[in-house]
Simulated assay, not measured.
Amino acid sequence: MKRLSTIVLMSLVGVALLHAQVTFRFSGGISNEQLKQNVERNVSALLSEINNAESAGRSLDFSGIRITETARGGLSSLWANLRFRCEWETNVQNCLRDVQEFEIRQIPVEMKPLDNTYKGEIHKELTISFNRNGMITGVRTAMDNNSYMSLMAGGMSVKDVRMRREILKFVEDFRSYYDEKNLSAIDEIFSDNALIITGRVLRKDLTLQSNADIRIPGKNIIFNKQTKTQYINNLRNVFKVNRYIKVDFSDIELIRHSSRENIYGVRLRQRWNSQRYNGGTYMDDGYVFLLWDFNDEEHPKIHVRSWSPVSGEVSSDNLLAPEDFSGL
């Protein structure tokens, strides 16, 4: 009888572990009581499902969770390559207001890699976005909070702070898009006439090699330009042949245009690691520059995306700034 009781008790513990309840509550920042309660229930259900799915080693089940198809697809794609679980049973965070939506930050998660190819940090933080209807619109791993707060501290007005938060949310999303191989999300954020440029150091004996090569006055870098269509097609091929892509961002800098208040530049260092399905690997290290246009605040767009290699010959004077594209 004692042995049977022990077995029953162990079974009940196992069931409890597979159905662990994670709760989320707002500490402030949201005044609509109905929206507040709806989001708390919805986020609690999502975090509980993440932990239960990780414990059971299965795919995510979004039944009963109000989440957009885009967010569901992105999280499912990430889950297929990298899993994680919420570290705290009870999570209390403030509600932040974005240009278009709301945001929850600093939910601690522990990464649970499926194999030994994962090279990133084990302990991270999750960020969840939701819209005015309480539906989850994005789930992503966040940059470290010290870097985030430092970049937000430069805000000069309420509007400026909103734009900075929107840009930083995209930077976090952009990193996740590579993990997810989410081509449609990348396609949506770039304007149809976006200029995509890849840079290389201009040495004394180097001349322009094609009509696609451009120079920017005062920069010791030569740039090769692509259209948005070319960039997306090239990225589609990259996603197709690679088993995984790991992108890390650091040295992030937000730059507001000196005379055009709705134009921003984002400069960051990007370290790229990828492994092909055939076993081959690729790594590079460079500076990415993104030119943001907030003239339509509800639908911001990126007009320029550039990449320049990290090199001893590249000084800070050669890194791009918003004023380099004032004619756009």
Rank of each mutant, 00 (worst) to 15 (best):
R83L: 02
F190I: 05
P108K: 13
I136A: 02
S191G: 13
S157P: 06
I189N: 08
S147T: 12
I186A: 02
T70P: 09
F174G: 04
L78S: 11
N131W: 04
G64H: 08
I167E: 01
L78M: 13
T117C: 02
N145H: 10
S76R: 11
I122S: 07
R66H: 11
P113E: 02
N81D: 02
E172W: 14
M111H: 05
D160L: 04
L151S: 10
N131I: 02
R164F: 09
R97F: 14
R72C: 05
Y177Q: 12
G154T: 11
N145E: 10
L78P: 01
E125V: 05
E188G: 12
G155H: 12
T70M: 14
S77I: 00
D192K: 15
S147W: 06
I186W: 05
R97P: 10
S184P: 03
R140C: 01
Y148R: 15
E180W: 11
M156K: 15
S176Q: 15
S191Y: 14
N146F: 12
I189L: 13
V92K: 13
N193K: 15
R105E: 06
I128P: 01
S63E: 11
S76H: 04
S176D: 10
C86S: 07
I65H: 09
S157I: 09
L168V: 03
L126D: 00
D179I: 10
D160Y: 11
D187F: 15
A71T: 07
W88H: 13
L78E: 10
D144H: 12
E121G: 07
N91C: 05
D173I: 01
T137G: 05
K159W: 13
E89A: 11
V109D: 02
N146L: 08
V139F: 08
N116W: 04
D160C: 03
L168K: 05
R162T: 08
D115C: 03
A80L: 01
L195P: 02
S184C: 07
L114I: 03
L151A: 05
D160T: 04
D115Y: 04
L126P: 03
E101K: 14
A194H: 11
A80Y: 06
T70Q: 15
V109S: 03
Q93P: 09
R140V: 03
V92M: 08
Y178I: 03
V109A: 03
D98W: 09
N116H: 07
I167L: 07
N94A: 04
D192M: 15
L183P: 12
D160N: 10
V99I: 15
Q106C: 05
A153C: 07
A153L: 08
W79I: 05
E101I: 08
E69M: 12
D115F: 01
N94S: 08
F130D: 00
S150N: 09
V171C: 15
V92D: 02
E69S: 14
M143A: 04
Y148M: 05
F174K: 12
N145P: 08
D179M: 12
T127V: 06
A142E: 06
M152K: 12
V158I: 11
G73W: 06
M143C: 03
E125S: 11
T137E: 02
R105P: 07
N91F: 04
E125K: 13
W88I: 07
Y118A: 00
F102S: 07
A71F: 09
G64L: 06
N133E: 08
R83S: 06
F170A: 01
I104S: 03
G120E: 02
V158Q: 14
Y177N: 13
